[in-house]
């Protein structure tokens, strides 16, 4: 079973996305902020990380950078999730080390397609 680390600070988004993904047969672990995401990436070794960009403590870009710099976690694919639909934000996320990009509100079929391409 594919294990997904969902990094999201908004309770509702977290609840909605995780329930839908669990229904589709994924295993979900959570992190609430950037630092927690870095720690969880090490301890849980998920198959894919879904990373919100606007996070407390350390933002998504910073967390992504640190995960990619750590040799234990560098191979984990990261899909950026953000409400900013503009092209520059997409570029910013991709330049920051994210492997893919999904705009919120999340289109589930498109997200699953992106998750599947990494597993």
């Amino acid at each position: 079973m594919t294990k997904i680390l969902l990094v999201e600070d908004n309770e509702m988004n977290k609840d909605m996305l995780s329930r839908r993904l669990i229904k589709k047969g994924y295993e979900i672990v959570f992190a609430m902020d950037g630092q927690e995401a870095i720690d969880m990436a090490k301890s849980e070794t998920p198959d894919v990380i879904l990373m919100d960009m606007g996070l407390p403590v350390k933002d998504g870009l910073q967390a992504t950078k640190e995960i990619k710099e750590n040799s234990d976690t560098t191979s984990i694919p990261i899909i950026a999730l953000t409400a900013n639909a503009m092209a520059e934000h997409r570029q910013e996320a991709l330049d920051g080390g994210c492997d893919e990009y999904e705009t919120k509100p999340v289109r589930l079929p498109s997200l699953i397609e992106k998750i599947e391409q990494f597993t």
Partner: peptide
């Protein structure tokens, strides 16, 4: 519009679910 999108996420997501 950025602020408006956050609750919209929930509306669209939950209704889809």
């Amino acid at each position: 519009s950025h602020e408006l999108r956050t609750p919209l996420n929930a509306i669209i997501g939950y209704s889809e679910m």
